[in-house]
Design a protein around this nucleic acid. Structure first.
Length: 528
RNA sequence: GGGUUCGUAGCUCAGCCAGGUAGAGUACCGGACUUUUAAUCCGGCUGUCCGGGGUCCGAAUCCCCGCGAACCCGCCA
């Protein structure tokens, strides 16, 4: 076989960065600063997939820097977008604010200046916890400060050409009539209902009428206001079909990833950038949407989604980075039950990185090491962290609920799994414990107890309550069952149901001592 | 109507995006340990890699044509 040349650290991220640079060289643009962009939705609770866009863009930034270029991630918040749908679980009064820019809607959680700022803060918080550096750019400021005014002007002057091209490319015909610019109606404060129908290029103003608009399945009546908006000053924004292009040029963006749901918009924007604005469009990479386990798209507008905040209750930031960096193609169903395997997988690639595990394929070793480096944001630790298999920890945490950290740690020392306690292990126990508490708790089973069993349980409770430590509890339990006329097999099953809400469990004698004799006795007494 | 992804062990899936011995968990079978259940440990079994064609010394992996499933777009942002 011909020797493969390894690019960068051998991952898809390096390959992408390499292609990006090749493309930039062919356009002849400067490479003093190669900026990458990620758009952040601000209309709903940000799920882990929204984080993916920014995290992957950051990966490309790292790869570019690794190749010797300066780079920066712009995190652009779409917080001038109008609210279209109220996410599940949020109050009904938001209905009064439908179609208003999310930055001009009060924060239903009461902790931020506005709805939009609350949502983008959640995402930025996720990025911060991941260790990702970015420059935050708000849509509101972008328009208020007129950063896109030249682009808006050019786009509006060419609106007829653009409208026809959109119809041709994606079959959407509305922009053959309407201008691709939505003023915020000065009468009612809404976007979308105000339709811009004429551009006055000398004054840089659009004329609009606030009519009715269809948003989702509902029809929203405008206030009928007839207005004029100054594109350099007044509130308003470009339609998505052209806005990206304007941003790319204004901010000199060379890379942006996108989800397949906005594929058409990106296609149009690429054309707009190239042909109308004269700015060669950035390099892209398309990713699949994250689906929840049922196969439904995780909507940013639905409550109860997998967010970075909720993920971090069970998994480390590195487990999220691994999820997002290991690959980009393919439909991904994602849920909290992926956390245990990702936690363990991180440990596996850590072992490969530090040479504790050998792979037979050299190219794969390089790629895996590269992946490990990206998951550590190209700043890998000096040596491996102490680690315990996540599933084992979940099992132990199910057994120990009180004094969890110290008791689980003691078990791990007994097993010889760890040599000494450490803050990392404490952290892992906390995470696995949350997981055990929230997900791995078996459904409450209805416990059927007959008279003979009741008697046996009562005898057992007596023994356990005694001051004296039983010498051979395992055997005692066996004998109690036999002398009470209960099948030992059934008796054990009942005990597991009482203690663990499960049909089976660890060896019962030592297990009861782990839980505590008195505690067990009282648990059993509840069922007698 | 347009587009994307997926199809691998009985089950859930990894491996594919940079081609090089077909993998894991689970289930199943056997053994060790246990005065019982379970756990644990050791060993074993499991394949039309959806079908067909192509490229290649070599294809689960790349390309083309089918079949099946899911999702996105065709409101809006």
């Amino acid at each position: 076989m011909e020797e493969q040349k390894i690019i960068g650290r051998g991952t898809w991220i390096d390959k992408l960065a390499d292609e990006l640079i090749e493309r930039e060289k062919s356009t002849g643009r400067h490479l003093d600063m190669v900026k990458v962009e990620s758009g952040l939705g601000a209309s709903g609770i940000p799920h882990i997939g929204s984080l993916g866009d920014a995290v992957r863009a950051y990966g490309v930034k790292l790869a570019l820097e690794n190749m010797g270029y300066k780079s920066e991630l712009i995190a652009y918040s779409d917080d001038l977008d109008g609210l279209r749908k109220i996410p599940e679980g949020l109050p009904d009064w938001l209905n009064d604010h439908i179609a208003k820019p999310v930055s001009y809607i009060p924060d239903p959680f009461g902790c931020h200046e506005s709805y939009g700022l609350h949502m983008s803060s959640l995402l930025l918080d996720g990025l911060d916890k991941m260790g990702i550096k970015y420059r935050f750019q708000r849509g509101v400021d972008t328009y208020k400060n007129g950063l896109l005014k030249d682009q808006i002007h050019t786009l509006l002057v060419n609106s007829k050409k653009i409208g026809e091209k959109i119809a041709e490319m994606v079959g959407q015909e509305k922009y053959q009539e309407a201008l691709p610019y939505f003023p915020v109606c000065s009468g009612c404060g809404r976007l979308y209902t105000a339709v811009a129908y004429e551009y006055l290029p000398e004054e840089k103003k659009v004329k609009y009428k606030c009519g009715s608009a269809t948003i989702g399945s509902r029809i929203l009546e405008g206030c009928g206001h007839d207005g004029v908006a100054d594109i350099t000053r007044d509130l308003g924004k470009l339609a998505w079909k052209v806005e990206f292009a304007a941003r790319w040029q204004a901010f000199d963006i060379r890379f942006e990833a996108y989800g397949k749901d906005i594929m058409d918009s990106v296609k149009v924007n690429d054309w707009v950038a190239d042909e109308v604005l004269g700015f060669a469009h950035p390099t892209h990479v398309k990713y699949e949407m994250f689906l929840d386990k049922g196969g439904k798209k995780i909507s940013k507008s639905l409550g109860n989604v997998v967010t970075s905040q909720s993920w971090l209750r069970y998994g480390t930031p590195k487990s999220i980075l691994l999820l997002l960096y290991k690959r980009i193609t393919g439909t991904r169903e994602v849920g909290f039950d992926d956390i245990p395997s990702l936690m363990d997988e991180y440990h596996e690639i850590e072992n490969i990185y530090f040479g504790k595990t050998k792979l037979d394929n050299e190219a794969k070793t390089i790629r895996t090491k590269g992946l490990f480096e990206y998951v550590n944001l190209l700043n890998p630790p000096q040596g491996p962290d102490q680690y315990v298999n996540y599933r084992l920890l979940v099992q132990l945490c199910k057994i120990f609920r009180e004094d969890r950290i110290s008791r689980v740690t003691r078990k791990l020392l007994d097993y010889g799994t760890i040599k000494e306690p450490s803050p990392q292990i404490d952290e892992l126990i906390t995470l696995a414990g949350n997981y055990a508490d929230d997900f791995d708790r078996p459904a409450k089973v209805e416990i059927q107890i007959d008279d003979a069993t009741r008697k046996a349980l009562s005898s057992l409770a007596t023994i356990l309550s005694a001051e004296k430590e039983p010498e051979d509890l395992q055997n005692d339990i066996y004998n109690i069952a036999k002398s009470s006329g209960v099948q030992p097999r059934d008796f054990f099953k009942i005990l597991y149901q009482i203690l663990l809400a499960s049909d089976r469990g660890p060896k019962i004698g030592p297990f009861i001592l782990d839980i505590g004799r008195k505690k067990t006795a009282s648990l059993i007494s509840d069922h007698v």
